[in-house]
Design a binder for these strands. Structure first.
Length: 543
DNA sequence: CGAACAGGCGCC
DNA sequence: AAAGGGCGCCTGTTCG
């Protein structure tokens, strides 16, 4: 593969953008060019659509703010993180400065806290402050490493970098969020909006009911007080988790459980959340690409990956627009089937748990799901043991795959995802048997979760590419592990849905070649995030 | 007083 | 029926 690459430093308030054309191997193919403004970047993009070499995801933010969109990228800091871990070095800083230090044989300083835009020095840009030169040098070293690392790592580097573009674009676009609908939901569930810091009427009433049931004031938000109150009533609980409280017979149980559920809604996604996070009809979380060890994304602010079902009705398309809501059906077991080549585990596009239940678990879908999740998470209790024996007999290769990963973790060896994301080793202190087993559960899950995250990342990259190349007006507005939301003009909704299905198929092929394992998406074209699929439209749409 | 931790629970 | 992989973030509690 030979492609044009251009390193870019978007500059800062007072510093103009600078670019430098590169060969595929990262060596410069021309001088540093100082552009008049970011329009110059847009012109290069329009003329040659290069792969842009950026320092970090935030570098793209300034371009987007100026209306400049890029097609493809190589994100130096994200790729550095992948390469440093793959090399067996962990806990190493992977900021640009640290990468430069490693190149020069110095011991890198810890990464500085996130700075805005990392402004280069205005005068006398010495080597240490010349971000463009640093980007060029580190990128060249990365290209050398990637050229020997194998096609998986090259795909991973490209997908991670594409993810950075998607993440910044989604933050800029924002998830459509109807504050009026959210407010109405809260009023229905909690009562009228209280004064700031006040307790809604429903919560106050439930707290009073809890007090009455115990015969004395008990703060339902204090686990210690609740434990003491139940102990006085003759119920010795270990914790106040709701599933444990649910099992005892006491008049305080019902109001307490209701209180906990509504209090969580109020504190996590109530009026204060709405005021903090929704502006002008959009919720704009900041996505942290590669923020999780497994390669899943994290978010900063607003708890974006935990939007409760109870408020999803507030996510609504603008008038004349629709939401395309798509999630990968049973992604992790399908990934395991492809990884382990145990194709009997995922024979087609039908619901995998239902199919397995019909064959092995007397039609009990919940049992089939528990069995598979137990295999991937390392659960052994709760009747999972019996179910696992069935899986071991029926899918020996798949079970051996996760059990090998678990053993690797217990023995302190490294495990990697399909494309080569490397799981950091255990911290010292995992010599204890219990800790080793915990480590085994972690690595067992890592191989599946990290590969599923890769599939989703490639899906995102492919989908973004499809939308761009077709000039689609649809925008990606949300991504959550195995689920994407797009906001699209109504007339483009079906094309957008088709693009999602196509991207899913391509993602499967790019990770697993001609594997027979399918990755179907459930695609809904709806007005509200909570809307069920229209009855005329099939819910399970094959790829 | 704020920082750090623990318990708990939302999502996947 | 029972409680395991990954997170972020809330409140209460304890520590410095």
């Amino acid at each position: 593969m030979c492609e044009v690459r251009v390193a870019v430093d978007p500059g800062a308030r007072d510093a103009p953008p600078r670019v430098r054309r590169l060969h595929d191997d990262g060596t410069p193919d021309g001088p540093v060019e100082v552009l008049a403004d970011l329009g110059g970047v847009a012109a290069i993009e329009a003329a040659s659509a290069p792969r842009w070499v950026l320092a970090r995801p935030r570098s793209y933010r300034r371009l987007l703010a100026a209306g400049v969109e890029l097609g493809r990228a190589h994100d130096v800091e994200l790729v550095e993180g992948l390469l440093v871990a793959a090399d067996g070095h962990f806990g190493q800083p992977h900021g640009l400065a640290a990468a430069v230090a490693r190149l020069q044989g110095r011991v890198p300083d810890p990464d500085p806290p996130l700075a805005d835009a990392g402004p280069p020095a205005l005068f006398d840009a010495g080597p240490a402050a010349d971000e463009l030169a640093d980007v060029v040098a580190v990128h060249a070293a990365q290209q050398r490493a990637l050229s020997t690392a194998g096609p998986g790592m090259r795909l991973l580097a490209a997908a991670e970098s594409a993810g950075a573009l998607v993440a910044e674009e989604m933050t800029a676009t924002g998830l459509p969020w109807r504050a009026d609908v959210h407010d109405r939901l809260l009023v229905e569930l909690l009562g009228p909006r209280p004064l700031p810091g006040g307790r809604p009427a429903k919560l106050a009433a439930l707290a009073a009911a809890v007090d009455a049931a115990f015969g004395r004031p008990v703060n339902p938000d204090s686990p210690a007080e609740v434990l003491r109150a139940f102990a006085r009533a003759g119920h010795e609980l270990q914790t106040t988790r709701s599933w444990e409280i649910k099992r005892i017979d006491h008049p305080a149980v019902a109001p307490l459980l209701a209180y906990k559920e509504l209090a969580r809604l109020h504190s996590a996604h109530g009026w204060a959340w709405l005021r903090s996070w929704v502006h002008e009809g959009r919720f704009r979380p900041e996505y942290v690409v590669g923020g999780v060890v497994s390669g899943r994304w994290a978010t900063r602010g607003g708890g974006a990956l935990q939007i409760p079902k109870a408020v999803r009705a507030a996510v609504r398309a603008d008038p004349g627009w629709r939401l395309v809501v798509a999630d990968a059906a049973q992604l992790e077991p399908r990934v395991l089937a492809a990884l382990s080549r145990d194709h009997a585990l995922a024979p087609g596009e039908e619901d995998l748990y239902t199919a397995l239940a019909a064959r092995e678990f007397g039609g009990d879908r919940a049992k089939a799901k528990l069995a598979l999740l137990s295999a991937m998470y390392g659960q052994t209790s709760g009747g999972a043991g019996v179910l696992l024996a069935t899986l071991r007999r029926r899918f020996p290769a798949a079970m051996a795959y996760v059990e090998d990963a678990a053993r690797a973790g217990e023995e302190g060896r490294l495990v990697r995802s399909h494309l080569g994301r490397t799981c950091p080793p255990a911290r010292p202190g995992h010599e204890q048997p219990a800790a080793a087993r915990a480590r085994g559960r972690f690595t067992r899950n890592f191989v599946v979760q990290a590969t599923a995250a890769e599939w989703a990342l490639v899906l995102l990259a492919e989908l973004r590419g499809l939308l761009r190349s077709s000039g689609s007006p649809a925008r990606l507005v949300f991504f959550q592990h195995d689920e994407v939301l797009l906001h699209t003009p109504a007339e483009a909704a079906e094309d957008t849905a088709a693009a999602v299905r196509a991207a899913a198929t391509t993602a499967g092929r790019r990770l697993f070649g001609d594997s027979p394992v399918r990755f179907p998406m459930q695609v809904r074209v709806v007005d509200g995030y909570d809307d069920p699929p229209p009855p005329t439209n099939g819910t399970l749409v094959g790829t």
